Amino acid sequence: MKVGSRSSERWFNRALWLVALAFAWFLTALGSLIVGDLPQVEQHYTLEQFLDRERAGPTAEALRQIRREQEENRRRSEQAELALEAARSASAAARETFSNWLKTRDATQRVDQDPGLVSRTERLDALKDAERAIETRLEGFTREGLDLSERAAAQERVETEIRIAAADKLRSAETAQELRVFGYRLALTLPLLGLAGWLLLKRRHTRNWPFIWGFAFFAAFAFFVELVPYLPSYGGYVQYGVGIIVTLIAGRAGINAFQDYLSRQKEAEARPNEERRTEIATDQALANLAKKVCPGCERPINLTDPSTNFCPHCGIGVFERCGRCEQRKSTFDRFCHACGEPAAVPTAQPA
């Protein structure tokens, strides 16, 4: 805060900074919604959009037909298993009855001339033949099921190949889409950042400075915070590469600015003392003196020594005697703090 500013001015400046922050917050909230909704300008891709229709359609239909045949085969196999179980039960019951009958018949009768024995034996053979027929049919169902499983596996391999190819195309399309959306975001935020930089350079000292700073805060947040999560990665190469480029640009700009500052300071220190004092704003000079640094070269000076009237580093006058009351005062004071006498040498107005 400026040392020579009024109390009401300081509070009014604080209120204007609140206006700047509020303006930046509302702009940032709106910008976040816009940046987040930008992907909606692109269509949503699905895997089915990239399937080879000439191969995917027949393959899917063949798989559905195989599934239906497998289901029918399973149903018939279950029915055959139930029939086989019933036939085996009938054969077992018939054999038990035949065994009991043999125990109670007259054993002296000739076997080949016994019509009852022949009839019962033929019935047992017929039951056994029926059982074997069902087993043969069940074996056929099993072989058919194995064949269907092999056909299904072959079709599934074809379908997998088709889906893998479609997934590759989907990833490529999504990557291209992400790059396009990132381009939209960059095209939105980069001009805002450039405009904010221009406004700060050219308009930050105007009466509308709260809106200038609020817009600058918004543009910086939109570019460096909202845009960074959408920066393409590619394993970190892009992010680290962009970081290196930004660091080089910012570092080079900082080095040039520092060298320019040193050059300006050397040029200023070479000019006459009175001319240099008129170029330094009163509030800035008083603020530097309050920090015990020279207003001209910004190096530390010993202000507690009453004999220190000039900076030992650059030679600029920092204290003098009032021409009216001889009171020691700062050379940057517009009036003597003891008697109110105007300064003999005109000084620059506050910034």
Rank of each mutant, 00 (worst) to 15 (best):
residue 232 P to L: 01
residue 87 A to H: 07
residue 125 D to W: 07
residue 173 A to T: 02
residue 41 V to K: 06
residue 229 P to E: 04
residue 217 F to L: 15
residue 107 A to I: 15
residue 172 S to D: 14
residue 134 I to G: 15
residue 119 S to C: 02
residue 190 L to N: 04
residue 98 F to R: 13
residue 310 F to E: 14
residue 238 V to D: 03
residue 289 L to D: 11
residue 121 T to C: 09
residue 326 E to N: 14
residue 4 G to R: 06
residue 306 P to Q: 11
residue 220 A to G: 07
residue 50 F to P: 02
residue 19 V to Q: 05
residue 328 R to W: 05
residue 138 L to E: 14
residue 17 W to P: 01
residue 223 F to K: 00
residue 158 V to W: 03
residue 54 E to Q: 10
residue 247 T to A: 14
residue 23 F to P: 02
residue 199 L to E: 05
residue 153 A to E: 12
residue 174 E to Y: 01
residue 173 A to Q: 01
residue 210 P to A: 00
residue 208 N to H: 13
residue 343 A to P: 04
residue 90 A to W: 00
residue 305 D to F: 09
residue 322 C to Y: 10
residue 8 S to Q: 07
residue 147 D to F: 08
residue 309 N to V: 08
residue 251 G to Q: 03
residue 277 R to C: 06
residue 2 K to Q: 12
residue 205 H to A: 13
residue 14 R to H: 08
residue 275 E to S: 15
residue 76 R to E: 14
residue 15 A to K: 09
residue 313 H to I: 10
residue 342 P to K: 09
residue 72 E to H: 10
residue 92 A to R: 14
residue 285 A to M: 08
residue 24 A to D: 05
residue 59 T to M: 02
residue 143 R to P: 04
residue 225 V to G: 02
residue 119 S to L: 11
residue 328 R to T: 15
residue 7 S to R: 11
